[in-house]
Design a binder for these strands. Structure first.
Lengths: 210, 210
DNA sequence: AAATAAGTTGAGGAATCCCTCAACTACGGC
DNA sequence: GCCGTAGTTGAGGGATTCCTCAACTTATTT
């Protein structure tokens, strides 16, 4: 473990400005904004940005640092609900709301996993999601052949819907989600044609990027 | 109507080579391949490409010229099946197969409508799709609140799944589609939270691109 | 086979974006 | 207040892609 010496006061402030600017521009224009634009919006030179965040991913990580925890909190709340199905639905709606409100987060989720190395935060999030799914399945409300990895379908689908018609109908993803949810109910289940994604396959696919 | 003078023989051959090369590169690397790369693959200079296809969209149109007709044929076949639900399912599976097999087509469908002006081919395709949906709805198999515009959810969803895990599990979209189909069945229907997209909204959203 | 029009070529200008680095500035310990 | 060092700056080199155009080549017509 190396000691992370504290930043100088001005450097600290610049860092905060950069993250703030990046958060706003990511949310507005997606995760591929030009870095120079972010530096400009932060009132700082491009050199400073590179000084603080050597790779683009470092900046992305900083901007979405708290998201893993947010998702974990949502998951915990979902688990606190009495009805397992209601918990699952509630969780998915909340996560999709996050994506719909932030184009950058939308890009992030649909393209690659934030940290390639399974950070604690995400580890924990996955564990909680796993419980949400298992609980809904065991209650007999979620179809028996639905796995944690199938949750990605929800994310991928609504994500694209937000991209496509978010400008004209920001809430349209709710309709898409509702259709999917109806297909996830146990009493709607017809045999699925393809085995579920194995965890390592999902990780590989997301690690590779789109 | 202006008379479209025929191309010189060599120009005609070059044009064909360009379309051939573009088709292959689009399918392999998506619709954003560098034009110079296409010219190189066609054994032709970049100037010739621009001579023949002044805008990128012109080349895209040429490559996917026949797709509208292909889709119409699929739709007709679907309508020729006795069971309306089977027709709908068969149609969606076939269209998704096209998308899964061709990254360029995938991009095209998920990003914008090929010709902004409603060409005859697409007009016809939409009309047939409309019949497929109506027929399945009236037979009582497709849920009553499902509209033609909702078909876009299928396309958007499976499209993203192909992008995300196509490399590692090329057929995974079938699972995604099957889940959606289970949600589209009349007996799975729970009230949907958002009114369907109006035709003009869909057109606007797709015309604008992503 | 000459003339003419049609078509081709590819270097290069313009626009972006990425990233570096040598010179400069200012914070903070003394 | 001085000074060492952490931090900042922004011009500029490198890539990539788009697109143009004046010089050149080739098909076609007569």
């Amino acid at each position: 473990m190396t000691t992370p010496r504290p930043l100088r006061k001005d450097a600290q402030r610049n860092r905060e400005q950069l993250v703030r600017a990046a958060r706003e521009l990511f949310a507005q224009h997606g995760i591929d904004v030009a870095l120079e634009e972010i530096a400009r919006a932060a009132g700082v030179s491009i050199g400073t940005l590179y000084n603080r965040f050597p790779a683009r991913q470092d900046l992305v990580d900083a901007v979405f640092e708290d998201r893993a925890e947010t998702v974990s909190r949502l998951a915990e709340h979902a688990l606190s609900l009495d009805d397992p199905w209601a918990g699952l639905v509630h969780f998915l709606e909340r996560v999709c709301e996050l994506q719909a409100a932030d184009r950058g987060y939308n890009d992030l989720v649909s393209r690659r996993v934030p940290q390639a190395s399974p950070s604690e935060g995400y580890q924990r999030g996955y564990e909680l999601m796993s419980r949400i799914v298992a609980r809904a399945r065991e209650s007999g409300q979620l179809r028996a052949d639905f796995t944690l990895e199938d949750m990605a379908f929800v994310t991928w689908g609504t994500t694209r819907t937000v991209e496509a018609v978010g400008a004209v109908r920001p809430e349209m993803w709710r309709r898409h989600l509702a259709l999917l949810l109806d297909g996830m109910r146990a009493d709607a289940a017809h045999p699925l044609p393809e085995p579920p994604l194995r965890p390592e396959e999902l990780a590989r696919a997301m690690g590779q990027g789109c």
